[in-house]
Each structure stands twice: as C-alpha cells, then as structure tokens.
C-alpha cells in the first residue's frame, strides 16, 4: 500500500517537472526557430531602424547593461547595510519589526507602482530626467526588498559561534561583522542579488512608466544619458505590423536570454570563488 502511494506521488512529481520544463522548452524552441536566423554580429552592433533587416539591438543591449550594472551598484550597498542593521543591530526593537513587515509587503508590490514612484520622485522631483540614473534608481528600489530579505537569510546562516569567538578575542561588533560575518555570508548575498537582478533585467512596465524611450539611436554615454532597454525594444518590435519585425523580436529575446545566462554564470563563478576563499 505504502509503495503504491509512493509510486503515485513520484509519477505526479515527475509529470509536473516534465510539464514545466516542456513549456520552457517549447518557448525556447519557438523563439529559436523564429529568431536564430536573425542573430548575427551585425544584429548585435546595428542600431534601431525602420527596415527590419537592417535593425539591430546595440543601443538596447548597451542600455540594459548600463542600467543593470548601475542598479547592482545601488542595490548592493543599500540592501546589505539595511540587512546588517536589521539582523545584527536592531533585531529586537519595535522599529525593526515594523520595517520587517513592510519589507515583506514591498516585495509583493506590482512593479508598475515602482515606475510611478520613480516618475514622481526621481524623474520629476529630483530632476534626473529620463536618464539611465533614474531607471537604475527605480529598479534598485524594486529589487531592494528581495536583496535585503536574501541578505538576512545569508547572515543567519553564519554560525553564532563565529561571532562569539570573535568577541572573545576582543573584536568590536563592527570588526566582527566586517571581518567575519560579511565575508562568510557573501556568497549567499551575491546569489540573492543576482536572482533579483535577473528579475529586474526583464522588467518593462516600470521603465515604460518612467518614460524610458523607444527609439534611442545611440548607446548611453553616461549616467545622465537617455536610454532604452532590451524588453522595450522587443515589445516595440512585436507590436509592429510587418512580419519581419517578429523575427527581430525573437532574436532580441535570445540576446536577452544570453545576457541573463551570462549574469547567472558570473554569479555562480563568483560564489564558488568566495566559498573556496572562506574555507581556507
């Protein structure tokens, strides 16, 4: 009897796995058949054009990389310091608990709301205009709750004995956190950051709300430059009447996927390196 239930459950689990992977495979194959032919070096280096066969993705790719790197530079220090405060300093205070509840809620706020906030605060109030900086600040806010939550998880995995050992040797709290806790938690922090950035790189809604442009025939040349990103370019191509633009859209999706995989690969490499260092 027990073995039959076991078998049923195994089949159920397996079919769920096959179904979800199958959906993914179908999507990837569909995009590949549509877009693989369009992928070429010139597609990566050309700018947007009304002629589908001449159109390229350089401006959007460069825009995406600018935005995502800047987002990481903003979200990492802010997120890590917030998490360190919550986890190491303010665990028991009422304020910390209040912040904690808000963080959990913020993580579930639809991304377009962040776009509205970004438009009001960064673009208009702070006068950043529709620049790379405004986009990155908005996306940094978007990923911040996830970065903080995952950093806290990572900090919790650091055994208490390490902290106690450090205190026993006369280290201050700051020294303990900086020299012992953070380096040990760093691989986990990095994983959380990369996962949340992977979400941010596919975001279209907040950037469209912000007023990110559609036709920007140049790569950003600074943080105050106007910009566009891959998902916006893909969205624009999909909604064109000419069928040839759909191939471009598929190829654009492939480029976006490539960028995403590269980011994840870099994250895995970095994490492994830090883990090895920690062990020695």
């Amino acid at each position: 009897m027990k073995s039959r239930a076991d078998l049923v459950f195994r089949i159920l689990a397996l079919s769920t796995l096959v179904f979800s992977l199958g959906t993914l495979a179908a999507l990837v194959i569909d995009v590949l058949t549509d877009g693989a032919d369009r992928l070429s070096w010139s597609f990566l280096t050309n700018l947007a054009s009304r002629h589908p066969e001449e159109a390229g993705i350089f401006h959007a790719l460069a825009g995406s990389i600018w935005v995502i790197v800047l987002t990481a530079m903003l979200a990492l220090p802010l997120g890590v310091s917030a998490a360190v405060y919550l986890e190491e300093y303010g665990t028991r205070s009422r304020v910390a608990r209040f912040i904690e509840i808000n963080l959990a809620n913020l993580a579930a706020v639809p991304s377009i709301i962040y776009g509205l906030l970004g438009l009001g605060v960064f673009v208009r109030l702070m006068g950043m205009g529709r620049s790379v900086m405004a986009g990155a600040c908005t996306l940094a806010l978007l990923v911040l709750p996830v970065v903080i939550l995952s950093t806290r998880e990572a900090l919790r995995t650091v055994p208490g004995s390490i902290r106690e050992g450090s205190y026993a040797l006369g280290a201050t709290r700051w020294q303990t956190i900086w020299h012992q806790v953070l380096p040990m938690a760093f691989p986990g922090i990095l994983t959380g950051l990369i996962l949340s950035l992977s979400r941010a790189i596919g975001e279209t809604a907040p950037l469209i709300t912000l007023g990110a442009l559609t036709y920007v025939p140049f790569a950003p040349d600074g943080i105050w430059s106007p910009f566009t990103v891959l998902p916006i370019q893909v969205f624009n191509w999909v909604s064109r009447p000419q069928a040839a633009f759909k191939e471009n859209a598929a190829a654009g999706i492939l480029v976006l996927m490539g960028l995403l995989l590269t980011m994840n690969a870099v994250a895995v490499l970095l994490r492994d390196r830090f883990q090895r260092q920690n062990r020695t």
Binding site: L70, M73, L74, L76, P77, L78, V80, M126, G127, M128, G129, S131, M133, C137, A140, W178, H179, L182, P183, F186, I223, W224, F274, Q277, N278
Partner: peptide, 25 residues
Amino acid sequence: SSSIRCLALLGALMPAVAACGGSSP
C-alpha cells in the same frame, strides 16, 4: 584577503549611492 576585497568592492560602490541623491544634471 577576502575581506579586503569585500571592502574594496563596497567602497567602490558607495559613490554611486551618493550620486543617486546628489545634484542632477
């Protein structure tokens, strides 16, 4: 060595935060 690297990384990132709240072009 790892903590130094960690420090260097975070230190390099800090100016960007300042820029976020700083003057606009």
